[in-house]
Amino acid sequence: MTTTATAPVSPARPRDEPPYGGAVSKPPRQTGRHLMLATIALLWLLPLLWAVYTSLRPYADTSKHGYLSWPRGISLQNYTDAWNQSGMPHFFWNSVLITVPSVLGTLLFSAAVAFFVSRFDFRWNIALLMLFTAGNLLPAQVLITPLYRLYLLVPLPAWMSDSLLLYNSTWGIIAIHIAYQCGFCTFVLSNYMKTIPGEISEAALVDGAQVWRQFFQIILPLCRPAFAALATLESIWIYNDFFWPLALIETGDKRPITSALANLQGQYFTNPNLIAAGALMTAVPTLLVYFALQRQFISGLTIGSGKG
């Protein structure tokens, strides 16, 4: 393969090198590139900065002078108001209760399936993989009506949900997130696991290690970068989802963070500055996750590609 052909030219270098760390030949026109990239990045940030600017201004100011004007008083008042008026802490917690178990469940389930299809040679592996992957590609609207009916039929014990049903319970939302997102993660993880050399598990088998130990002690730790990448993407998707709870949760107090915003969005009267502040606050958790896992994000998605 290509590797053999090019190996003499340059020995492989570790990927996560600091910039300029071992630069041999500096490419020309770097300034131009910076200029271009900085412009684009700024352009991309502009809409967000505009929202931040709006959120910092009192409604009285903007309704009088317009939004495209110099500020007469910048304050965090909108943020405190949004925080207090919408019951945001409560809804944040609801979203955590939905997102964290969903992401972990998705990763665990898909790791299991990926382990199965990538490390063992069963006849139905490819069909299975296709079933999982295709499941994630179904439009969510296709599922909602029968799912709602199904949820009304599944009883839950009182300690799990006061609705006594899968319907109107956080568990129901977690379940559909896991089932629906599993396909995507299985796909990524199975590709990732295939890149783990077979010798590793063979050695384990020779040592007489049980399969479950192989899974938990060898394969899962090796998949950490992929987990980080998937955790980022899935957190973003699941946290931001507003579709499933719309039909599957009826108690206002159980709804996720998107509801807090809807509460700010008055039926008749809306204060855009307040909404901007509220909306920006809801974006903080995903931003934190992204920044925390950013280093692994790209390398985790980098799996066995580029050998066409």
């Binding site: 590797t3 492989a12 570790p14 990927r15 890149t195 050399p197």
Partner: peptide
């Protein structure tokens, strides 16, 4: 293969 092993 270098590539894969490296990642892992």
């Amino acid at each position: 293969m270098t590539l894969q092993s490296r990642t892992v």
